[in-house]
């Protein structure tokens, strides 16, 4: 078991784990980074054998359905539109009808 883990040490690097964490806005301790690096590495290895399949003749598929051109008519009734009260019902903090979040710098 130990030997197998060693073989897969480089499936995902510490830098890649840190980059993923920053993209999804979570903070990780050094221990957690190491633990996730091992676990994510195992997951990647587990599905790695998929890349052995020859897919050169297979077209990319977005959905499992045969549907296409699904759209709605502009100005159709909108029964699902919320009242302001309902829209804000689950917010942590609101003010004068707005959602409120800690100050964010301009993009």
């Amino acid at each position: 078991m130990k030997k197998q883990a060693d073989n897969h040490m480089n499936s995902i690097t510490t830098e890649e784990v840190l980059r993923l964490a920053s993209m999804i806005r979570i903070e990780l301790s050094d221990d957690e980074v190491e633990k996730l690096r091992e676990q994510l590495g195992e997951t990647i290895d587990y599905i790695r054998n998929l890349s052995e399949l020859d897919t050169s003749n297979v077209e990319a598929e977005m959905t499992k359905t045969e549907l296409k051109n699904i759209s709605f008519r502009d100005g159709a009734p909108s029964p699902r539109t919320f009242s302001q009260e309902d829209a804000l019902a689950n917010a942590h903090k609101t003010k004068d009808g707005f959602f409120v979040v800690p100050k964010i710098l301009d993009k």
């Binding site: 003010k95 707005f98 959602f99 409120v100 100050k103 964010i104 301009d106």
Partner: peptide, 13 residues
């Protein structure tokens, strides 16, 4: 639309 006010950002969707 975000409006930055004091220490907060107000959001209108």
């Amino acid at each position: 639309k975000l409006t930055h006010k004091g220490g907060e950002s107000l959001i209108d969707y």
